[in-house]
């Protein structure tokens, strides 16, 4: 009996311990990034290159996906609303869904798979080819020089990308609702504007995407830095970045939503 318990504990214990150790390392790493951040903010050009890498290169996928998501939302929403004679609320439906949820969440998921995985691969390869060790031997701290700029580049890019996603989605909704289905343009926009609150809906969406930006960027740089310095190690880390990011984004979204829209 005792043996069975011991066996069980050691079975669960090992991965659990490993997970906790990893989480602890990630926390320590986060603090190290913050401590070494002044360099990336003072020498902003370093961060600039990472905004280009994480942000600019993600614009295309974000904009195109946003447009399609908005168009689908409008088509589906119209089908439902028209049964209740409420088709003039289509703009409200599209805008609220995008600004509150889909913009930040889907934007972050796309960001994680486009930019997060690229950041992990880049840092992981730098580690595997001893570039980070070389930097250390040149008395340059890789966390300050390589990791922190990538982290901040991601953190800065994410809210902008999420806003672009929402804006494009609403535009897509407008194309379908007004141009294709022939809703009245004036009431489409004015109802939307009356129902969407800047502080409660738009700003909370931006705050959400800022949280997601921190989470995804941290996971991406951490997985890259922690990757085993081999080809399989790096490819495994890239996958882990996307999977972990997706889970964390959705869990975090639940917590933030419960917190922000409680009692409304």
């Amino acid at each position: 009996m005792v043996n069975v318990l011991v066996n069980l504990f050691s079975r669960i214990g090992a991965p659990l311990t490993r997970g906790i150790v990893k989480l602890g390392f990630a926390c320590r790493f986060f603090i190290a990034i913050l401590r070494h951040s002044p360099v990336s903010l003072v020498r902003f050009r370093l961060t600039m290159r990472e905004i280009w890498f994480a942000g600019v290169l993600s614009v295309l996928i974000i904009v195109v996906s946003g447009l399609f998501v908005g168009m689908v939302l409008a088509l589906q929403g119209y089908e439902t609303l028209v049964r209740f004679g409420a088709s003039s609320s289509l703009g409200v439906l599209v805008a609220l869904s995008l600004v509150r949820e889909l913009g930040p969440v889907v934007g972050a998921l796309l960001f994680a798979s486009r930019a997060g995985s690229a950041i992990t691969a880049e840092i992981g390869l730098m580690k595997a080819t001893e570039q980070l060790a070389a930097m250390e031997m040149m008395a340059v701290n890789p966390v300050a020089r390589v990791v922190a700029p990538r982290f901040w580049g991601g953190v800065i890019s994410m809210p902008l990308l999420a806003a672009m996603f929402s804006a494009m989605g609403i535009f897509g909704g407008y194309l379908i609702g007004v141009q294709l289905l022939g809703l009245d343009e004036g009431s489409f926009w004015s109802q939307m504007q009356a129902a969407v609150d800047f502080r409660l809906d738009v700003m909370n969406g931006v705050i959400k995407s800022a949280f997601f930006g921190v989470a995804v960027s941290l996971i991406a740089v951490f997985e890259g830095y922690d990757a085993p310095p081999t080809a399989e190690g790096v490819s495994g880390a890239t996958t882990r970045t996307v999977v972990t990011s997706a889970l964390v984004i959705l869990a975090l979204d639940f917590v933030l939503t419960a917190f922000m829209f409680r009692g409304v």
Binding site: L125, M126, T129, Q131, A134, M135
Partner: peptide, 9 residues
């Protein structure tokens, strides 16, 4: 000098 140079790519 690292084994394969470790130049910044």
């Amino acid at each position: 000098l690292f084994q394969f140079g470790a130049l910044f790519t």
